[in-house]
Design a protein around this nucleic acid. Structure first.
Lengths: 66, 66
DNA sequence: CGACCATGTCAAGCACACTTTACTTTTTCG
DNA sequence: CGAAAAAGTAAAGTGTGCTTGACATGGTCG
């Protein structure tokens, strides 16, 4: 599952810790999602979309494995 | 997390087993998601949206807890 | 140089997504 | 009504999402 998280975060000038706080998750979780270690849960995906004011579909790309 | 899965499934005339097969999950998983026992993973949410030809946001409603 | 910040990563632990098997209850239909 | 299909539910097991705590690295800046 690819995503544009790092680019979106950079556009907003936020550190991983900043974003983590806004999403109410740990900094390690943001890092893991950005580096592709695992996918967010659906509720977290919704919070991510909300924070960036866009849709889940425009941030995450399921590619083959979904 | 509320969802319109049961209604969408009914519109298509599919049983839980039919949908499960199309989503490549077990019938119990479809049942659990419909009855609100838990939320699907993000990849499964993408497959559900794809099967019904609509967006994740139009099928799932995060409500308060996201 | 030395302190700080951002990022990356590891380990242990808990909760949940999903499985298979199996059984009960409800709905549908001849 | 009676049989079959559909739906609900439960238990036990596996994998992963997310946690805290800790440590290493690289960049920036006084």
């Amino acid at each position: 599952m690819n995503n544009h998280l790092r680019a979106l975060r950079a556009e907003h000038g936020w550190s991983q810790a900043d974003l983590a706080e806004r999403l109410d998750v740990s900094r390690q979780t943001v890092n893991a999602i950005e580096t592709g270690k695992y996918d967010p849960s659906l509720p977290l995906a919704f919070r991510i979309a909300r924070v960036f004011g866009s849709s889940i579909e425009s941030i995450f790309d399921p590619g083959d494995q979904a």
